[in-house]
Every structure is written in C-alpha cells, then in structure tokens.
C-alpha cells in the first residue's frame, strides 16, 4: 500500500532522493558516503513521527545536514581511538579493546569547547548577539525574532549572518565542533 500520501515527508523523500544524493555527494566528495547519509534520512523519517513540517523538501536537506555532521563526528572519534591505540592508551580486556582515554579529560575538553562557543557570544555587538541568541538559543523564527526586537526581518537576517560570520572568525576550526 502506498502510504506516501499520508506522509508528506516520505512523499518528498521519494521525489527528492536523487537530488539529495547529488547534494551530499558534493558535500562529502563521495557518492557512497552520500548514499549512507540519504539512507539515514530515510530511516529517520520512516521511524519517527515528525508531525507537521512546513516545507518537507527543505526539511530533508536540513535533516541530512545534521546526520552528515553526526557521521563526521563518529568518524573523528573513531580516528581518535585509533590514535590512542597507537599511543598505547588502550588496554585489552578479555580480548576487547577498551579505551583508556581518561573520561574526565574528554568530558572536560567537550565542556571547554562549549564554553568557548558560549563565551564567544560576549564579543558580538549587542543587537547582533540578541538576534543570534533569540533565533539560535531560544528557537524563535526570523519573523518572531524581528517582532521581538522591533526591527525588520531582513535586519534580523543581516544581524544573524554577521553574527555567524564573526563567530567563524573568532573560533578556530579545531574548536568549533565535532
């Protein structure tokens, strides 16, 4: 039975699949990795009840962007484990490799990284910061942020873009994530 009419996301997915693979292949420089991400998108929308989505096609791209980042993080963690292995931080227990990387250090580093992202907000001019915080941290839409700040939507977008640009400049590529 075709349930795509009842599930607009699934319908959009079936229609957009080729476009999604092409986009993520461009991002990941690998058709195989792109297929993985697009498959992840399918698993996610088939298993989760996402409710109403305003623009299903755009939503699939956004979902894919998040899933791609998750995959990159996992890969980086795996690489870090391999490195740790070579440096002798792994011990064998019952034949299985167990990471000996001190969890406190890892947690500390992760928290430091988040602190850095939060403290970087202090360096933004007030309006720019407020627009960015209302949108990103409080989850208001551009229009809601505009109403909140009493400025136009396009002014909000300019503030948010300028904020992101400044944050990219402030935060080194090693600090920013994943």
């Amino acid at each position: 039975m075709d349930d795509s009419s009842a599930k607009p996301l699934l319908a959009a997915y079936l229609r957009k699949r080729a476009d999604l693979v092409r986009y993520f292949a461009l991002r990941l420089k690998s058709a195989a990795l792109a297929e993985d991400v697009v498959q992840d998108i399918y698993v996610r929308i088939a298993s989760a009840d996402t409710g109403q989505v305003a623009n299903p096609s755009a939503y699939l791209y956004r979902l894919g962007a998040n899933l791609m980042l998750d995959r990159l993080k996992q890969r980086r963690r795996a690489e870090a484990r391999d490195e740790a292995w070579q440096e002798g931080f792994l011990v064998r227990m019952g034949g299985e490799a167990v990471a000996e990387d001190p969890p406190a250090d890892a947690a500390f580093a992760a928290r430091q990284r988040l602190r850095r992202l939060v403290s970087a907000l202090d360096d933004l001019p007030p309006q720019r910061r407020r627009a960015f915080e209302l949108h990103k941290l409080q989850g208001l839409s551009h229009a809601e942020t505009a109403a909140e700040m009493g400025i136009s939507r396009s002014a909000v977008e300019k503030h948010i873009i300028a904020a992101l640009q400044q944050l990219v400049a402030l935060i080194g590529p090693e600090e920013d994530g994943a």
Binding site: K16, A54, N55, S57, A58, Y61, S141, I161, L164
Partner: peptide, 21 residues
C-alpha cells in the same frame, strides 16, 4: 566566507525552500 554565512542562515531557516537548497 561572508557568502557562506549568508547561505547557512538562509537554508537553515524554517522559511527555506527546495529552491534555496
């Protein structure tokens, strides 16, 4: 860099459309 920031904000906005992507 500036254009990239603008694109990120555009396509990750809830008003983004298929055409934006």
């Amino acid at each position: 860099k500036g254009e990239a920031a603008a694109w990120v904000v555009r396509v990750h906005s809830d008003a983004a459309t298929e055409d934006d992507w």
